[in-house]
Amino acid sequence: MYRDIVDFALSTPAWLHSLAETGTDAGLFLFVALFALCWWRARSAPARELAIAVAGPAGVVGAYVVSEVLKVFIQEDRPCRGGVATIATCPPVGDWSFPSNHSVIAAGAAGALILAWRALAWVVLPLSALMAFSRVFVGVHYPHDVAAGYLIGLALAPLFTLLLVGAVTPVVRLARSRLSPQQAGR
């Protein structure tokens, strides 16, 4: 399946190659902007809602750390090392393939954003899936790297976010009480 996708990718126009290479990272910046928008939207909402918006990025970082630990233990070589022609330059030796960190981050951000603002699901889920698929399309990951990374991110980032909410909510209340006594109880 990997070779079929990579061979197809090589037959596509050069503008699509550029879009696929830069699109994954650009999509991650879009998720950062969406986290900022969620924070802005929740700034006057009940403390727990704001805590979810604040804890979301930390949940994504937690999922990323888990994926990095897995990479160190599994040490699967990149598929692009065997002389396969790919769109992207193959990452250096020692930069392992399984699971895909980009997929973990994209899916984790989508999951955490959905916790903060459910209406974003129709945007962030397809975008994160496209960002994850692009890692196979450009040739730097096997499909199973991306699928595993996607599942890890989608499961763990929201879980870590919810685990942090209990600690972040009292901090939000405290900060609000110092800024405005009327918002202290929210």
Score class of each variant (00 low, 15 high):
residue 132 A to Y: 05
residue 40 W to P: 00
residue 125 L to Y: 08
residue 174 L to K: 12
residue 125 L to H: 00
residue 48 R to I: 00
residue 163 L to W: 14
residue 91 P to V: 10
residue 175 A to M: 12
residue 173 R to E: 06
residue 8 F to H: 12
residue 92 P to H: 09
residue 154 L to I: 12
residue 181 P to E: 12
residue 28 L to N: 11
residue 76 E to I: 02
residue 76 E to W: 04
residue 5 I to C: 04
residue 103 S to A: 15
residue 42 A to V: 00
residue 71 K to L: 05
residue 19 L to V: 14
residue 18 S to N: 14
residue 172 V to H: 03
residue 139 G to Y: 02
residue 183 Q to S: 13
residue 37 L to I: 14
residue 12 T to R: 14
residue 81 R to C: 01
residue 47 A to H: 05
residue 164 L to I: 05
residue 60 V to K: 01
residue 126 P to V: 06
residue 151 L to Y: 00
residue 185 G to C: 03
residue 3 R to L: 14
residue 61 V to D: 00
residue 186 R to D: 13
residue 70 L to I: 15
residue 144 H to P: 01
residue 45 A to Y: 01
residue 70 L to V: 15
residue 74 I to G: 01
residue 65 V to E: 05
residue 26 A to P: 00
residue 158 P to C: 10
residue 58 A to Q: 01
residue 30 L to I: 15
residue 28 L to S: 10
residue 50 L to V: 02
residue 3 R to T: 13
residue 1 M to A: 14
residue 49 E to H: 13
residue 82 G to A: 13
residue 24 T to N: 10
residue 136 V to C: 06
residue 177 S to N: 03
residue 8 F to D: 04
residue 41 R to S: 01
residue 35 F to S: 00
residue 154 L to K: 00
residue 143 P to F: 06
residue 93 V to K: 13
residue 80 C to V: 05
residue 23 G to F: 01
residue 86 T to R: 07
residue 9 A to S: 15
residue 37 L to T: 07
residue 116 A to P: 05
residue 65 V to C: 11
residue 186 R to C: 09
residue 160 F to E: 01
residue 145 D to G: 06
residue 76 E to Y: 04
residue 131 M to K: 09
residue 182 Q to I: 05
residue 129 A to H: 06
residue 146 V to G: 05
residue 134 S to T: 10
residue 9 A to G: 13
residue 15 W to R: 06
residue 182 Q to K: 12
residue 75 Q to M: 10
residue 136 V to F: 04
residue 162 L to V: 09
residue 24 T to E: 04
residue 112 A to G: 09
residue 152 I to L: 15
residue 148 A to K: 06
residue 51 A to S: 08
residue 173 R to P: 03
residue 92 P to Q: 11
residue 171 V to W: 14
residue 27 G to S: 12
residue 177 S to T: 04
residue 15 W to N: 03
residue 96 W to A: 02
residue 139 G to Q: 03
residue 89 T to N: 11
residue 84 V to W: 03
residue 17 H to V: 10
residue 134 S to Q: 07
residue 165 V to K: 06
residue 168 V to R: 07
residue 164 L to W: 04
residue 148 A to N: 04
residue 106 A to C: 06
residue 166 G to H: 03
residue 100 S to Q: 09
residue 100 S to T: 08
residue 157 A to Q: 00
residue 41 R to T: 08
residue 71 K to A: 12
residue 177 S to Y: 03
residue 107 A to D: 02
residue 148 A to G: 06
residue 103 S to R: 07
residue 84 V to M: 14
residue 93 V to Y: 09
residue 4 D to V: 11
residue 29 F to I: 12
residue 45 A to G: 08
residue 49 E to P: 00
residue 1 M to T: 12
residue 137 F to S: 05
